[in-house]
């Protein structure tokens, strides 16, 4: 049963990652949203393990971090001028007013996830500080650059 849970989380995570990869170059709004959904799933996987709701598994943890790092590595390329007007986007117009600030926030997510991959967490306890450093990025970027519609 436990194995099944882990496997299904891993599959969901990687499926989201694959969806992201597949949609590359097509619709930029869909691409960036898929990417963020993958990031959300990865974050959920890690938080679940840290809280002991799902058993810790080092391979799933690393896969989750890698997925986030992968999304961050290209995330800012999917914000062409005018794509803040798409009906289904929650990207804030502030992204285009302060593209440098936005790129810096993307770079920070990439750096923090890279450091976490390097650290290769080997237990649920080791995930705590990583959730803090990686997870802090979500809020600070969403505070400045996202708006609900």
């Amino acid at each position: 049963m436990k194995k099944l849970v882990i496997a299904s989380i891993l599959t969901a995570t990687l499926t989201a990652g694959a969806a992201l990869a597949a949609s590359h170059g097509a619709d930029p709004v869909a691409t960036r949203k898929n990417g963020m959904q993958g990031v959300g799933l990865a974050m959920g996987t890690l938080a679940g393990m840290a809280k002991g709701e799902v058993p810790f598994n080092d391979k799933s943890a690393l896969a989750a971090l890698k997925l986030m790092n992968y999304v961050a590595s290209t995330f800012d390329q999917h914000f062409p001028e005018g794509s803040d007007m798409a009906a289904n986007t929650t990207a804030s117009p502030k992204i285009w007013e302060d593209m440098d600030g936005f790129k810096a926030a993307v770079a920070k997510l990439q750096m923090d996830t890279a450091a976490a991959i390097e650290a290769a967490p080997a237990s649920a306890e080791a995930l705590g500080p990583i959730l803090g450093s990686v997870g802090g990025n979500c809020k600070s970027c969403h505070e400045a650059f996202r708006v609900k519609n």
Partner: peptide
Amino acid sequence: GFTPEFDSVGG
């Protein structure tokens, strides 16, 4: 600051 879907609070 996380929703049930692990979206993060913003704005």
